[in-house]
Design a protein around this nucleic acid. Sequence first.
DNA 1: AATAGCCCCAACCGCCTACAA
DNA 2: GTTGTAGGCGGTTGGGGCTAT
Length: 299
Amino acid sequence: MSTKTKTLSSSSGEDDGELRRGPWTLEEDSLLIQYIARHGEGRWNLLAKRSGLRRTGKSCRLRWLNYLKPDVKRGNLSPEEQLLILDLHSKMGNRWSKIAQYLPGRTDNEIKNYWRTRVQKQARHLRIDTSSVEFQNMIRCYWMPRLQQKIGGEISTSSAVLNQNHTISQPLEQNTFPHFTATISPPPQIQVQEEINMSATMYNLDVEKQNTKAEYCTGPYIFPSEPMDMSKTVQFPECPPLHCGDNNGYDTESFNLQETVSADSAPNFPGNSASDCYVAETNWLDSDFLCSIWNTDVM
DNA sequence: AATAGCCCCAACCGCCTACAA
DNA sequence: GTTGTAGGCGGTTGGGGCTAT
């Protein structure tokens, strides 16, 4: 954010003694860092008064936790982190701070922004509610497997996927993510069966490198009650061979359904039943969708 | 090259809860 | 019970950067 830090005082001016707002300057950052180095975190209102910063304690706290704290990680979320967010959100909901505890170096604000700008955007395009079963199933059935695939480094081309029986069996990457197995039949229907078993170690992301908080990823599996059994069958309508542009950045759209899913068809989105993701007769999918699923990167 | 529109994200606000004094 | 503080969350804003035209 350093590129964005410029002096911007409150509308009432710089020297009138009122609290400052807007982007933090390097000088303010330095002041805050020095103060915390001497006195430690906490007592934010006191800190705000004594440090010489004309900021609210809340603003100081946010600036420290979201940006200045040494273990804050910058940059794009990795596929592993994205997958973890999707999975944790499916269990925890909008408990951003709780989710952030399992992503060392990531802040609740960052995760919330990710969710709102990336995930909710997909829901808007689909015209469905992110809390709906339909959307949750889409996450589980398509988005997460795609991330899984990315993590495994076994991204198939659309032609390879669509023109032959293809079984994808992802070996677990040493310590990380759920086992995923997809069996894909050729058109007219593509069948995906996945079995995701959350291993006891799946959340141990970069523990050695990142773990600066005792609660980060060091304890037992956070949802010990049951392994996640998400066996399901997904059936797609026919998808003809397609020419799909490469789309390899994390930040690209995953499901370009904006123009392919009408409001009328939205209610028929897969997973109307909570127990499966079955869709056979509706036409909510089209070539663009499958193209995006199988041939482009997820985010 | 210029412009408009969109996207992303840091930062903010308001409200809430928890907790200690 | 009241008050003050810290922290969490949802929603929003504003500006820089990117992209399409």
